[in-house]
Design a protein around this nucleic acid. Structure first.
Lengths: 139, 139
DNA sequence: TCAATAGTTTAGAACTATTATAATGTAGAA
DNA sequence: TTCTACATTATAATAGTTCTAAACTATTGA
């Protein structure tokens, strides 16, 4: 809202035109102290709370994908009917609470480096992601 | 095909009626030396190859979910447009080849035990799954 | 053995997340 | 300012999955 020049620069420097929709989405995703997880549906709700100018669903999808491609967002692999995204793009892992259907970050420093003692010929490792599924103690 | 009594017992003992559809799906999923990964679509194709009596799509979904619930199948967390299942229900991990969209088992013995040095109060760990995304070396 | 019943299968409709389309709008360059 | 390539939009299309409700069948117990 206030200081958008940062986002404008960020967008422009990665070859994305700083349109008002993209800037608004930047504000919603990156103007927070803490990183967070969201689905497209979550983001649409946040947008409609934050502004009166609605952004079309297609643009939300386009923007999220563009941001993911540029490395501003990560997609988190969970079996789910919808995709989860993370504004925390640093290397880290996740708890997935199967009762609350809630994702919780695990700091990289809280996971001992994962050693994989096998390789696939002709392939290089792109990422190593740990998903810790948890549930209520009494279940 | 031949010795179905094993599957009949297995189904019955877990409270699932041994219908011919379920027995057929058991044969396809569990009559193999090696475990494998599949999508619902893969399974439907295997069924239509294996038999002339077609099994309706709804039944395939129902059966896979029932088998998953009983622990005969695992669902593998990958971001994908469709769900992947695994007939290997032992503890192990996966490579996901992003170019070929192919899943490859990583033996549990090929991954050093993953130590998580943090916990969520009131929650217990249900599983720890490692997904190693790989891609072609020249990409 | 046979009817009752509770669980199962089925085709097809419905639903939901996501992607494609193609017309309109707009940022940035000339 | 004008042009053009890129963006946005509403809407249609697609694809995986779930729902529905009627028909079917394995099991129970009389």
């Amino acid at each position: 809202m206030l200081n958008n020049s940062h986002y404008i620069d960020k967008l422009r420097s990665s070859g994305l035109r700083p349109t008002k929709q993209r800037i608004k989405i930047c504000e919603i995703l990156f103007n927070t102290e803490k990183t967070f997880h969201f689905t497209i549906n979550d983001l649409v709700k946040k947008i409609s709370k934050a502004t009166n100018d609605k952004i079309s669903l297609a643009t939300v999808y386009n923007t999220v994908h563009a941001f993911k491609k540029k490395g501003y967002l990560k997609e988190i692999p969970i079996n789910s009917d919808q995709s989860y995204f993370d504004t925390n793009t640093s290397h880290h892992h996740h708890f997935y609470d199967e009762n609350q259907k809630d994702l919780i970050d695990i700091d990289d420093s809280d996971v001992e480096p994962v050693k994989i003692n096998t390789r696939i010929p002709g392939k290089k490792i792109k990422s190593v992601e740990v998903l810790v599924k948890v549930e209520d103690i009494n279940s």
